[in-house]
């Protein structure tokens, strides 16, 4: 196994998403691979895509790809452009800024973002 896995294995932090006034506990931070996403289900049925970038920061955006309607953004590839992290939809490859939810390839489109913490 590589060193990265060892590092994350020691990571005992928990990821929480803003939910109304409180925080909804999602999972252990170690379940996320840097550069890759996972999907989480909120109590109200909404789907959230969670990512960890290379610097260790956690991001959360809506899981639904607005271009196709499919709930797949968590399965896209993470990258960075000009220092800002983005995810590219696995279907038609449009990119979304992980901090603002804005689509980088179409000014008119954006996805909701969620407040998230890992501690």
């Amino acid at each position: 196994m590589t060193t990265q896995t060892l590092e994350t294995a020691q990571d005992t932090r928990t990821i929480r998403l803003a939910d109304g006034d409180g925080w909804f506990t999602v999972c252990d931070r170690e379940l996320l691979t840097p550069g890759r996403g996972v999907a989480a289900l909120l109590p109200d049925g909404r789907q959230v895509a969670l990512f960890v970038d290379r610097s260790g920061r956690v991001h959360a955006i809506d899981n639904r790809d607005p271009f196709t309607g499919a709930y797949v953004l968590s399965r896209g590839l993470v990258g960075s452009a000009g220092g800002r992290p983005f995810v590219a939809s696995p279907l038609l490859k449009q990119r979304f800024d992980l901090e603002t939810g804005a689509c980088l390839d179409d000014d008119e489109v954006s996805v909701p973002v969620f407040a998230v913490r890992a501690d």
Partner: peptide, 14 residues
């Protein structure tokens, strides 16, 4: 230079 230390992108990663 400007990409070092970053996350790469969907083109070069695969």
């Amino acid at each position: 230079e400007q990409a070092r230390g970053g996350d790469g992108c969907e083109v070069c990663k695969p």
